[in-house]
């Protein structure tokens, strides 16, 4: 019971700390992710990338968030030939 109480107290304090700035932090994180995504997918988007050979193996990891990303960018369907997420 004490342990549960402490856990809830820690959670309450963490939420009080994070809530006001969560938006700013997550937006900054999203901008960083977008930049990284752009670097990884740049070759597919028509931007020459000398590191494409190395970033290619990261492409599968991009799949999960790709649909959310292209919709957020205002593209209803996937802009990439090889990516058919929707």
């Amino acid at each position: 019971m004490i342990r549960e109480g402490l856990r809830r107290l820690f959670a309450f304090y963490d939420e009080m700390y994070q809530a006001p700035y969560r938006r700013i932090e997550r937006r900054a994180q999203r901008r960083r992710d977008d930049l990284f995504r752009l670097m990884v997918l740049s070759e597919s988007l028509g931007v020459p990338n000398p590191a494409a050979f190395y970033t290619l193996e990261l492409v599968p990891f991009m799949l999960e968030d790709f649909h959310e990303w292209h919709q957020r960018m205002g593209m209803e369907h996937s802009p990439l030939e090889g990516f058919r997420c929707c």
Partner: peptide, 20 residues
């Protein structure tokens, strides 16, 4: 979306709102 729109406990939100 866990970024801009996050349902928050009203006591926490009041604390945040008041201190802002």
């Amino acid at each position: 979306d866990s970024v801009d729109f996050v349902p928050t406990n009203k006591f926490i939100l009041w604390g945040h709102h008041f201190t802002s």
